[in-house]
Structures are given as C-alpha cells and as structure tokens.
Design a protein around this nucleic acid. Structure first.
Length: 942
RNA sequence: GCCUUGGUGGCGGAAUUGGUAGACGCGCUGGAUUCAAAAUCCAGUUCUUUCGGGAGUGUGGGUUCGAUUCCCACCCAAGGUACCA
C-alpha cells in the first residue's frame, strides 16, 4: 500500500493531483485515437465553441463534462473512442473588435483560443487534441472552399433523387435540351432544345447552368443598413431601425450566393425518422421545413394574357372562391390594375413597402387591402373573381397569391367580411354565419358541381384530376424552407474560391486552394459600399500564374477580380465532424480509410439553439456529400442530446429611494425600494452579503447605511440568464482553484438531468467535495489481504449496476448520488478490502478522472486507469432471502414487516393478518380484500 | 394561436414495467470536538396534529386493491414558431 500515514499524504491534495495527471495525459497522449483498431469504434462529439473574449463560465462545460464521461466510459468498455475538440473561430465579435481597435481578428482569436484551451485543460477532458481544427485556419477552410466548389459543380436530378455532377446535365442538354430534365432549378429557367443549347454563347450557357447549380448567384432582398454598411438579420432590426446605433434600414436587392437546400427539403424531413434526436428539435426542423400538400392552380385573368398561379392546401374548396388576393409586391399587380384603381393600388403598395417585414408580421389584427379592378376567371364555372391585393399575403411564400375561400379560411373570411365580399357556403350542413369552417376531417363538399357529397380526400383527388384535364393545375407539395443565402459582407470569414470573368463566376481549381483571406487596412465596408474585402489591394486572380495578385493588374483577360463577400458562420461547422476523422490530410478532405472506419458520430452533444441553423445546414451538406460518394452515411449523427442551460442565481440588495438606507431582504416590505444587482461572489451560502466588500466593489454605496436583520444583511435571490451585466456569472477557474476539477465535474452533473435547464448555486459544491474527501479516506485506510464481506460486495455490485445503467441512459445526476451512497455505506462498513476499492476507482474514473488515476496508482498500477476494463456486475451478490414488506391499508403504507422471500401468498397474508399492528389499524373492521404481491407489497382493503 | 417540454419540501432534485413519495446533496436546527474559528463527526428536518393519527407530487375528475407514474379537462412556466394560403 502506497499511502503513508504521515498526515500529509493522508490529505486529498486535489491541486497537486489534478496538475500531475493533466500533465501525464498530455505527455503520454493518453487519449490519442487511432484510425484503425481491433476495437469497435465510438465517436463522441461536442459542438465546438466560438472562442469569445469572455472565456468560459460554468454553463459552458456542462455538455463537455457529460460527453467526456461517456467517452471515458466507452474506453473502459473496450471501444476505440474518437473524442475531438476544436474552435469555430470565424465570427463577428472578433471582427467588431477589429473595427474598434484595429487589432487583426486573427490575433484576438489566437489569444482567446489560448485562454479557452487553458480553461478546458484545467477541467481534465479526454480530448484528442492532436485532431484540433480551427475553422479560420487556411488548412481547414481549404476544405470548406472545396465543398463549396463541389456544390457549384452539382445539380439536383429529381429522377435519380440525388445530386449529380453538372456534366450529366450538360450532356442531357446536348442530347435533348432541357424539356426532359427534371431538376431543382430557378423558376425562371427557360425551356430550350438541343439545337438551341448548341447555339447558345458560352456566357448564356453559364447563365443557364447557374440556374441549376446547388450553389448559385441570385438577387436576394436583404435588410441593408447604409450607415453600418452591412446587411442585418431580421432580429437585428427593431422598429425599422438597426438595433445597434438606430440607423435606418432599407430593403435592397443584392447579388448573393445561395445554397439550394430546398432540393433536399423532403430528404431532410424523411431523415429525421432515422436519427435519435430530441423530439422538440425534430419538431422545430419539421416546422422550419414546413411541408404542405395541396395543388398548384392557374387562374386566367379576364381580358388579359396573364395567368395567376396559386398554391392551395384546399383545392377541394375551389368552388368557394369568391376573390383572390395577391401580395402587394406581386409582379402582376402593376400589369393588371385598371386605370380607375391605379392610384389606390399604388398608394397601398408604397405604404406596404415602407413597413418592415417584422412590422407586418406583428400586426395581425388590422385588415387592409385594395381592389385592383381586374377579374380572374374560375377554371370551372368561368365566373369572374375580383382580384385584390392585401398585405396578409406574403410574396415569399408559395406563389405570393391566394385563391381566397372565405367559408373555409378564417383570414379570407375576415377579409371578405371587412370588404363586403360574398361568402358562398360550400359545406354540407355547416353554419358559417359566425366564422369560417376549416375542419378538413369533417368536411362534406356541397354547391360544388362535380365535387358535391365528397369528403376532403375524395374531393381533393377529383379536383386535381379535373384541373389536369383542362391544363390548369396539378397536385403540388410546397415547402416553407427557403434557399439559404450564403454571402456575408464581412471580413472575418472564409473567402469564396471565386473570380469573375465577364461577370460570370469561375471556380479556382482545387490544386490552388486554399484561397487565403487577404490583409486589409480597414475592416469596414468600402466607401462605395463594397464588403471589407474591397479594401484589399491584392485581391485579383491571375489565371496564368494561378496566384493572387495586385488589383491594379486586373485586365479581364488573364487577371480577374475576386469575390468580395465571405462565407457565413455556418460554413465552417457544416462538415467539421467528418474532418476530425482525418484533420491533417492535405490531399483530401479526409481519407477513405478514415471515414470508412469512423463512419459517423455516435453521440453528439450541444445546445438546442442550433436547431434550425447549424443542425439543419450540416445535415444538408452531409446528404450532398453522401450523394457524391464522399460520405458513407446520409445522416452524420446517430444520437444527439441537447444539454440544458445553466442559469445564474442573481443576488439583490434593496436601495431605499427616499433615504441613504439599503434594507436587508426581510425589512424591505412597505418601503419604497428598488432592487440592485449585487455580485454573487460577495454573497455566502446563507444569502448573507459581505457588506464591506460590497461597499468596496460599488463605491457609490460606501456611505450608505445597510439596515441589517439579526446582525446580517440578507440578499434577495432570483434566477436569471448568466450574464456579465447581472453580476451572476460564475467562473470555473475560481471553482477549480478552490475545490478542484473533479468536484466541479461531479457537481455540474449532480445539479440535475442533463437536458433540463437548472440554476447554478456554488454553495452546493461542498457536498460533492466532501464526498471526494470521504472517498479518498476510504483508500487511505485500506489494508492488504482483507477479504471483502458479503455486505461490501453487495454495496459494490449494486453500485456497478446502477452506474452502468445511468451512463447508458445519460442520467449522470443519479450516478453521483449512487457514488455517495456507496461511499457512505463502505465507510460505515469500515471496508478495507482492495477487491472492493479497486473496481470502485474504475467506476468513479469517468466522472472524477484525476482522483481515480491517483488512487489507481496508489493501488500499485503503473499504467493509466483510462482503458482498464469496466467492472462486471454480478447479480449473485444482490440475492436476498428476506424482504421488508410495506404493509398498506387502502393503498397507504402504515408499517413494515420483514418476511422471508420464499414465503407464499397465503402464508404472507396469514402472517400479516396475525400481526398486532394490523389489528390496531383495522380497529375491529373486517377487511374486504387482501392483495399480496410476493416480493413487492401487501395491501389490505377495508 | 399552434408545436414541444416541464410543474414533487426552504433549494437542486430522486422514485427503471402502476407497488414504501421526498433517495442523495445544499440550507436550516440541536449536539460533540475546539480557548476560538475552520474542518470533521452525530442526531433531526414535507405539512399538520389532541402524538393515536391525518393530509400530501400544479387544479378538478376518471381507471385501479393501489396513481408522481395511465386516461380526460383545465391552470401555470420555459423554449420554438407564426397573417404559411
């Protein structure tokens, strides 16, 4: 036994132990994973962080601790575990900082990463750091650019239902034009024959191909803020002005790269059934994709050659159409409006354009619209249908036009009521005098010619048949999902590997990648409104030398301008999980051997805030890589868990508005006080404030009178999001310093279920810390050659069983309780047996790896504990021969009675009925019934 | 509005197929040790009570010998989403 009873080594010196093993793991590369092994593989992935300047707070490592426990457990279970970490290091904060200070984002990012790494190392994670990736590293983004080029060179063939190389498209065009091609492409793609294709100029061909490519240039409407020189997301705009600075925002068309993610809408939906992801996350992806089934109907316009295409989910109600509504932005509006209505329509269109999208969405109560004066024609009855415009119809959804059926849709109903438009009733036996009837399941169609008497399903099928016969429509599935804009007017992002010849985009050849981000003087947009890359002096592509050269050399003959936009934040995170498999590969995105071995992620842990961003885009890229034979799996993560947020417990003092007094919580009633945040580090576990420290911290209060209750100042408490401004941020560094990483790891798990959000309260950590001390003590009193008792074995094996089940179920909080119970029991049993303590160290190792390694070494082992086989549970140690039966009366447990387990039903009943407490409970009454479940319970009814 | 998740002591939470509600920890109370403090250890801690007991898992019903667990209706909180045709 290596413990010495000199009083010094008896102590649990976590600082020394943790530093020692962190050094050991780094030096021995204990957690380096190999790309081939006899062992089965297991891939545990964390969402990599953006390295912000603020560093980590206690909420950040929660998921990392859980995944680390799982990874370490899998190593004990004999798996070859891949558990990598890296940085999503392109992003806005570093760029903002650069704009303010001139500091290059690369320098800020490097410093932040260094700090993150220190903090992560301090927590004892078993990451394979040799595989670290950084999205801002050219060696990494070379492959982000490479995937972009693959997308550019691909189109989506609906016939094969997958992405194919653009060459299969052009060979189709050469043979038969595009009439036979079924592709996902722009709506304005013209139809042409093989002969026409052959006659097109090279430029025209390129323009046409751009309509098919999976990444393409398109004019997109954006929120442009001239003052900031940038495009803003919807949530960066408040009341029509920029959130930052309050500058005006206008809608502007810009040519931007887009990703044809809509080609994958159905597959992204279908794929959800094949992966074990949380239901709320699947639901939000499902809603985001927004599939709806219905019909595409074309309405002719009277006295006009134009047609209005419409998407409806209720083609069965087509005979109830009494008007049509177009979005005010609809391109037909100006073409069909009659002279009499022109003024009114123009005024309405103008008024709508001024309102922000958010404004329009928020205001759902006001009904507004204008009649265009034009009439469409009902495809069957040929009756005239007035065409209105209204801002409740959105240009961006469906076709931007609605066939309005007021009896079946509440918004159409409200609109019709408001403007006195007729509301024909086409439902059998339904009253529509008060509201529309939208219940598909109970619909029987009436007053509808050939649809009379049919239900929703039958009528829908019938009407689609008839529409096809007259060539005015067909069944259609519509998706809410839009193609994803992929351009950002920023500096700190991946440059596009694109230069422009005659305005048409050209890809830089693979062998010349990466195209590295140029140096710029200023990180702001140029004076002409170009993105920051417009400030670069060397940003032109020399096709002869295949090199970036000075802009002044641009001759549009051999030297061309490069793309000025950069890629969005999600570009770098859309395939990083695959790149981890072979991160150093310079020849390919990863080797076939590497991905052939690792295949996909077995467990992915991260926040639910990425539900419709990263987690949808990355699935899209993976599906694409699968189509191209680059990835072996359609879905890259079998199982995903969202860790909950850790909230802060803010502390408040109560400042009296009328005096210089600050009241303790219990004295504030009836006083005119306002709560002021106090830094949580100044408050102890009993909510007592260190008043002197508070005065020192907020010097405004140095002369204030703190009114105490029972000699103490008690703060108020409230749960809020952890944030600097609320002074409730708790830093893991301080906790590691005071209690150690093992305590922090255990405590974060002990707080509650991984997936739920829960408040942080540092005070509770003393519980797990003293558990570790008790654990340590247990080993200090160990003696060689002591045989385990039956009790010892029972405690050990029930712990093995429970901990194993807990880890498999991701119920890490209950494991910590189980360890505590185990150590409490073994301590009470005065267990000194190595046969018990040795397996216990392995059980604890995934949760508290430093202390486990140290104990393992003291047990006489020369190698790390990290791959030692997990103890095997043996049920024989838990076999009991008696049971303490709960004796219930009408379902309420009243007393307990110990009886042998082999006792039969009747004997149990007899023993219970004979018991004096039973007679006392019954108090002379005769029981109606006695339920005996052997081994479980006895319930007496009566 | 819709979708999802949740609601259990002063607090975080436990209860694996319907079978002893409140494990484990924090906090609190009392005690031991100490000159004192920290640390450590022991006992108690859902509420209520006439000390026999009674009530109790958001609310109201139901199924059952028995419900935190299953069913119905509702209330509240958090997250997502929205004139989506």
């Amino acid at each position: 036994m290596q413990f010495e009873n000199d009083g010094k080594t008896m102590n649990y010196d976590f600082r020394e132990i943790e530093a020692k093993w962190q050094k050991y793991w780094a030096k021995n590369q204990t957690f380096k994973a190999t790309n081939n092994s006899e062992k089965p593989k297991f891939y545990v992935l964390d969402m990599f962080p953006y390295p912000s300047g603020a560093g980590l707070h206690v909420g950040h490592p929660l998921g990392y601790i859980a995944s680390d426990i799982y990874a370490r457990y899998k190593r004990h279970k004999g798996f070859n575990v891949l558990h990598p970490m890296g940085y999503d290091s392109f992003g806005l904060p570093a760029e903002q900082y650069a704009i303010q200070t001139g500091q290059h984002p690369a320098i800020t990012t490097e410093a932040n990463i260094k700090r993150y790494r220190e903090q992560l190392d301090q927590l004892g994670f078993s990451f394979d750091w040799s595989r670290e990736v950084r999205t801002s590293n050219p060696k990494y983004y070379k492959w982000t650019q490479w995937v972009f080029i693959q997308l550019f060179n691909s189109w989506y063939n609906k016939k094969s239902d997958k992405a194919e190389d653009i060459s299969t498209l052009t060979s189709n065009f050469e043979k038969a034009g595009n009439s036979e091609v079924e592709a996902v492409c722009d709506e304005d793609t013209p139809t042409f024959s093989a002969a026409e294709w052959a006659s097109f100029s090279d430029r025209t061909k390129q323009e046409i191909l751009l309509k098919y490519r999976l990444t393409y240039l398109a004019d997109t409407e954006v929120n442009w803020c001239p003052a900031l020189g940038t495009v803003l997301a919807n949530d960066e705009i408040v009341n029509g002005v920029s959130e930052r600075g309050g500058h005006p925002v206008i809608r502007k068309k810009m040519t931007q790269w887009s990703m044809r993610i809509t080609a994958y809408a159905q597959r992204l939906l279908d794929g959800l059934d094949t992966i074990d992801w949380p239901q709320p996350l699947k639901d939000s992806q499902t809603n985001w994709i927004g599939r709806s089934e219905g019909a595409h109907v074309e309405f002719n316009i009277q006295d006009s050659a134009f047609k209005i295409p419409v998407f409806t989910t209720r083609p069965d109600t087509i005979f109830g159409t009494s008007f049509m509504t177009l979005a005010p932005e609809h391109e037909l509006v100006e073409k069909i409006t009659t002279p009499e209505q022109k003024e009114a329509v123009e005024a309405y269109v103008e008024a709508t354009a001024k309102r922000s999208e958010r404004d329009r969405m928020a205001d759902v109560k006001t009904i507004s619209g204008v009649f265009t004066g034009a009439y469409a024609e009902h495809p069957f009855t040929k009756a005239p249908i007035p065409i209105w415009i209204g801002d409740y119809v959105l240009a961006s959804y469906g076709t931007g036009a609605v066939m309005a059926v007021p009896c079946g849709d509440q918004r159409d109903y409200d609109f019709a009521m408001h403007y006195n438009i007729p509301i024909p009733n086409i439902f059998e036996g339904v009253d529509i005098s008060e509201e529309a009837f939208a219940d598909k399941a109970n619909t029987i169609i009436a007053n509808s010619d050939f649809l009379n008497g049919l239900n929703f399903k039958e009528a829908t099928r019938k009407v689609i048949d008839e529409l096809e016969k007259i060539g005015q429509g067909q069944g259609k599935i519509n998706y809410r999902l839009r193609d994803a804009v992929f351009s950002r007017q920023r500096y700190w992002g991946e440059p596009f590997p694109v230069y422009y010849v005659d305005g048409m985009p050209q890809m830089i050849a693979d062998e010349h990648l990466p195209l590295e981000l140029p140096e710029v003087e200023k990180y702001l947009p140029t004076e002409t409104g170009d993105p920051p890359l417009g400030n670069a002096t060397d940003w032109a592509w020399d096709t002869k030398q295949s090199a970036v050269v000075n802009n002044q050399l641009i001759n549009n003959d051999t030297i061309f301008p490069l793309e000025l936009n950069t890629m969005p934040g999600w570009a770098g995170s859309s395939q990083y999980f695959n790149r981890y498999m072979d991160p150093g590969n310079t020849e390919a995105i990863y080797s076939e051997e590497a991905i052939g071995y690792w295949q996909d992620v077995d467990l992915y842990i991260g926040g639910s805030e990425h539900a419709t961003g990263h987690l949808l885009y990355s699935r899209f890229w993976q599906q694409f890589l699968f189509d191209k034979g680059i990835a072996p799996k359609k879905e890259y993560a079998k199982k995903l868990i969202n860790q909950g947020m850790i909230t802060g417990t803010s502390a408040f003092v109560y400042k009296d508005m009328d005096s210089n007094k600050v009241y303790s919580k219990g004295l504030k009633e009836g006083k005119n006080v306002i709560p002021i945040h106090a830094d949580v580090s100044l408050v102890n576990a009993s909510d007592e404030l260190d008043v002197e420290a508070f005065k020192k911290w907020q010097s405004d209060y140095k002369d204030a009178e703190f009114v105490l209750e029972e000699g103490k100042y008690i703060v108020g408490r409230e749960i809020e999001k952890m944030s600097k401004s609320k002074y409730n941020v708790v830093n893991p560094d301080n906790i590691c310093e005071e209690y150690g990483a093992d305590s922090l790891r255990l405590y974060e798990m002990f707080l509650g279920p991984l997936e739920q959000s829960k408040p942080w309260n540092t005070a509770g950590i003393t519980g797990v810390h003293s558990f570790l001390k008790k654990l340590w003590k247990l080993y200090a009193s160990m003696e060689d050659g002591v045989e385990p008792t039956a009790e010892n074995l029972k405690t050990l094996h029930k712990t093995i069983k429970k901990v194993e089940e807990d880890i498999e179920n991701f119920s890490f909080n209950t494991s910590v309780s189980t360890f505590m119970i185990c150590v409490n029991e073994l301590t009470a049993q005065k267990c000194k047996s190595k046969a018990i303590l040795e397996p216990l160290a392995i059980l604890v190792s995934p949760y508290a790896p430093h202390i486990a390694e140290e104990l393992w070494e003291k047990l006489g082992h020369g190698e790390s504990i990290s791959t030692v086989t997990f103890p095997i549970f043996e049920g024989k140690y838990l076999v009991e021969n008696s049971k303490e039966y709960p004796i219930s009366f009408n379902g309420k447990m009243r007393f307990k009675l110990e009886l042998p387990l082999d006792m039969g039903k009747d004997e149990i009943e007899a023993a219970v009925m004979a018991h004096e407490k039973t007679q006392a409970q019954l108090n002379g009454r005769e029981p109606k019934k006695v339920i005996v479940v052997p081994g479980k319970i006895v319930n007496i009814v009566g």
